[in-house]
Write a protein that binds this DNA or RNA. Structure first.
Lengths: 223, 223
DNA sequence: CGAGCTATGGATCGTTGTTCCATAGCTAGC
DNA sequence: GCTAGCTATGGAACAACGATCCATAGCTCG
């Protein structure tokens, strides 16, 4: 059959779902979730609202698609060891959220988000490879997913709390100082770790939690 | 033109920050986060917007205060065993979010939320009691907090996705059916656990994750 | 050469958070 | 007892948002 040439270009730079999502990611990276408005998108293409809504059904649709696009990585070959595979998978999600914090809030927003399902599936497969009994696989994979999404959300929240081009170091300095000024009788622990906050590595801390879960899985299996 | 005398008399039921927060919780429980508008609050007290903004500085302030109020439990006496104390603490947060899902999304929104700080402090104290080395306490407590907030967020998202009086069982049935209909080659794990989703216990699953982390902490300490 | 679909630009609607202002009750000082 | 000033209230007004609707222009096909 003759290939239908859909070159119905009204504009030089034809609008499309892909181009809109790419622009949305740009705007989200620059201004956070509040910076993305349908009007800002329309202005980016020097067009009207109708053109945007012709390609996208709603703003939620736009953000969901942008999140999927940002997290749809090349799915690098999984390491042979299931534990390492989970670590690599988790870090891939973490790094994506680190680059695009607004996506972190979206990931846990709708449980049916395709990306979240794919992550959950990947985790589940590695949990099976770890030899976790069938009856415990659901709980184990859910725990890993919940932890990953939890960290993703906190990163997103932290990034949004200091919207503009604020330096990350400055933010941590501020929080650390705030923690140090807490009431010593009610917040002895937080005060004790306040100095560590200033130059701690988010990524390493995230990985430490994954390792804790993996150690727990190992321990539960051999007991 | 002295026609309209404005009815700005002092009210019998005097407005106050506490009464506004209580009403906000009522509205949030009934209609979720989207159901709470400043105008709905004003209508609840048969007053205007100015009266609300006199007591509360912003809508974010209202939601934050409502979240704090809902999670400020009686802080029951902690069990002697640190592990049990963490379990009890985590379940207290879980049950609060279960009753007021909208609070789950708020908890991780602002890291400086007093309630989150208190939870973090409590976790940290028990982590210390567990004998975790000082250098690992920050990471360990953070992992526990991230997991708890992660589950809280997912509960909040799930509750919001089916806003009205939809039955929880019906929602799970639907998701379970959706999982079963996934492509078998790409979602073998999710399909395998789909039946378990239908009648799984959220609370027990949450606790299983806590136990996994506790087992991991134990294992890391003795190795 | 029109009919019909695709796509666009923008007016418009309803709702939201927030600010502003006029005004009434209350209280302290004289 | 009177008034200046603070506390509190009710509601108008504003700016911005997501979403819908509509007129219209380009294009394909019969």
């Amino acid at each position: 059959m003759a290939a239908k040439t859909k070159n119905t270009e009204r504009r030089e730079d034809a609008l499309s779902r892909e181009r809109i999502i790419a622009a949305a990611i740009e705007i989200l990276d620059a201004g956070g979730e509040n910076g993305l408005t349908v009007r800002a998108l329309a202005a980016h293409f020097t067009t009207g609202l109708g053109a945007i809504y012709w390609h996208m059904s709603s703003k939620a649709d736009i953000i969901a698609a942008a999140t999927d696009a940002v997290l749809a990585g090349p799915a690098a070959a999984a390491p042979p060891d299931p534990g390492d595979a989970i670590r690599a998978l988790a870090l891939r999600v973490f790094d994506s959220i680190d680059d695009h914090p607004w996506a972190g809030a979206q990931l846990s927003r709708t449980a049916s988000q395709p990306t979240t399902l794919k992550i959950f599936e990947s985790i589940g497969l590695q949990v099976q490879a770890l030899g976790v009994p069938a009856a415990a696989q659901f709980n184990t994979a859910s725990a890993l997913l919940s932890y990953i999404l939890g960290v993703a959300n906190q990163n997103a929240a932290l990034a949004q709390s200091a919207e503009p081009g604020t330096n990350r170091t400055a933010v941590l300095e501020g929080v650390s100082a705030m923690w140090t000024d807490l009431d010593p009788t009610h917040f002895s622990f937080i005060r004790s770790i306040a100095p560590q906050l200033r130059d701690h590595d988010d990524r390493a801390q995230f990985l430490a939690g994954i390792d804790l879960l993996l150690a727990g899985i190992q321990a539960s299996a051999t007991s």
